[in-house]
Simulated assay, not measured.
Amino acid sequence: MTVMATEAHPATDALLDRWTALLQRCGTTADPVPYGRELLRRWAEPQRRYHTTDHLLAMLDQIDLLAEHAADPDTVRLAAWFHDAVYKPDRSENEERSAQLAIRALREAGVAEPRIEEVARLVRLTVSHHPEPGDRDGEVLCDADLAVLGGAAEQYAAYAAAVRAEYSFVPEQAFRTGRAAILRQLLALPGLYRTPTAVERYTERARANLAAELSSLES
């Protein structure tokens, strides 16, 4: 990871503080600040409409909420920082490239190798959002990433609009067809969430939101 000099901005100070404390808890031997600023620069790239620093902040808050279910909450937090650090809407290899970025950056920062390997595994898991039974850290990361589906109707509408904006280069009918297929797959799952807290808090609203968007796309 090439650390670039970036100017701090008040809106990102709280996130940078959280990153710095996290990397220090994870045993870094380097100054965390330049790495955090580079990650925040990536999360603020102009092609992003949903996968922004707002999404990162929401995920970190969700991980805090679900932390009791994780085996190693700080490793899950590191994975959240990196899981969409590389993001191009027209590319299919974003998760793998994000995992490789995590490996390079965390090695350079002196984080222990077993934790680096686990972060990369978790980042790759966000391709499918299907953790194996007993994968407590994977369950927390995936539930945090999908928590947006269980938001209030207006929050979900803003999320859906932001996703459409990210894929503005896709013709309308093609987007509707592809998005509808994804929604059907999600609705067909026996469970959207794995942790007891997320199951209780989000399942009902998530299914209602997904069904409403699918109905809109098919109308």
Rank of each mutant, 00 (worst) to 15 (best):
Q155H: 15
L183P: 06
P196F: 13
A160Y: 02
Y159T: 08
A206W: 00
T126L: 14
E117C: 07
V199A: 03
H130R: 11
R194I: 07
G150K: 09
A165L: 03
P131W: 03
E117H: 15
Y202I: 09
R207T: 07
Q185E: 12
A211I: 01
A181T: 02
R194C: 14
S216Q: 10
E132C: 03
V170F: 06
L146I: 04
A162E: 02
A161Q: 06
V127Y: 08
G178Y: 06
E213Q: 01
L192R: 03
Y159N: 08
E154V: 13
R201M: 09
L186Y: 02
E213C: 01
E204H: 10
E166S: 03
V119I: 12
Y193A: 13
P171Y: 09
V127D: 10
L192T: 07
E132W: 01
Y167M: 12
L214D: 00
N209M: 04
Q185W: 14
S128C: 12
R176E: 15
H129L: 09
E200S: 12
F175P: 07
L149R: 06
R179K: 04
V140L: 11
R124L: 08
V163Y: 00
S215L: 05
G191V: 14
E204L: 13
D137A: 15
A152E: 14
E132V: 02
R121L: 01
A120S: 11
V127W: 04
R124K: 10
A161E: 02
